[in-house]
Amino acid sequence: MASTESETKQTPLTEEELAHRVAVMKRFRELLLEQRNRFQEYLVVLDKQKDVIEKGDTDALLSHVELEEKIVSDIFAIQKVIDPLEDLYRASYPERETEVPKLKAALEELKHEAVQRSQRNRNLLSERMEKLRSEIKTLRNNPFAARRSVYDNSGAASLIDIKG
């Protein structure tokens, strides 16, 4: 029983262990805040992208897609660092987690919102593409599109037979 009592008693932390725990906590919090900011930036881009899709501006859409890819790449890069750091944080602070769960909940909410807006934009883009396909099909079926103009010289002979 003496060993159980000694196991339940906590040994005081050294300055180095305490400094390490504080550094882990600060870095973890910074990364969560950075991740939250990236998601907020992503939501703004998705909203602007929606407007661009509705206007049909393909050049602007291309630049928004490129920006979106960069932000998503940043989000995944930060997440790769957050995951192991979260394990260190939980090991350092198993008993007290007050601010981190709030940040994580806000992040999850932002992720959910980003997924919804991204899906909305995909749906809008699909509708726009279908509309364009329909317009192209209508143009192809136009009976006047196949006729040549009397002023069209592209079908004229380029060589003249003078020997007869």
Rank of each mutant, 00 (worst) to 15 (best):
E66P: 02
Q49T: 07
T8R: 12
R140H: 06
K111H: 15
R21W: 03
A2S: 11
V72H: 01
S134W: 03
L103M: 11
V100S: 02
L32N: 03
Q79F: 15
V44W: 03
I71L: 06
M25T: 13
E15C: 00
D74L: 07
L85H: 05
R27V: 06
T4E: 11
E130P: 11
L33M: 10
G56S: 14
L88G: 01
R133D: 06
R96C: 08
R120Y: 06
L139I: 14
A114G: 12
A114V: 06
I78A: 05
D47P: 03
I71V: 06
T58M: 15
K48Q: 10
R96N: 04
K111T: 13
R38T: 06
H64I: 07
T14G: 02
P12G: 04
R147I: 00
A156S: 11
L124E: 10
P12N: 01
A105V: 05
Q79V: 06
K70L: 06
E54K: 13
I162M: 11
T11S: 10
E5S: 12
E113V: 04
V44Q: 12
R21H: 13
P94R: 04
L85P: 00
A77I: 03
A105H: 04
E127T: 09
E86R: 10
V65M: 14
D87I: 08
E113Q: 15
L132M: 13
M129D: 10
E7S: 03
E127D: 13
R148L: 00
E127K: 10
G155W: 03
F39W: 03
T58D: 15
M129P: 01
S6M: 04
L67F: 08
L61N: 09
A91L: 13
K102W: 09
K131C: 03
N141S: 08
S118M: 15
L67C: 07
L46F: 03
A60N: 08
S6N: 06
A157H: 07
E113L: 09
L85M: 10
E41Y: 07
R38C: 04
E97A: 08
R147N: 00
P94D: 04
E15P: 02
G164F: 02
T11Q: 13
A145D: 06
M25N: 15
E127Y: 15
L124H: 08
P12C: 10
E109V: 04
E66S: 14
H20Q: 12
P101W: 06
A157M: 14
N153Q: 09
L88F: 08
R96T: 06
E5K: 07
S63G: 09
V65P: 05
V52K: 05
Y151G: 01
D87Y: 07
A114F: 01
S126K: 14
R21T: 05
R21D: 09
E16H: 07
A77G: 08
D51H: 11
A19F: 02
D59E: 11
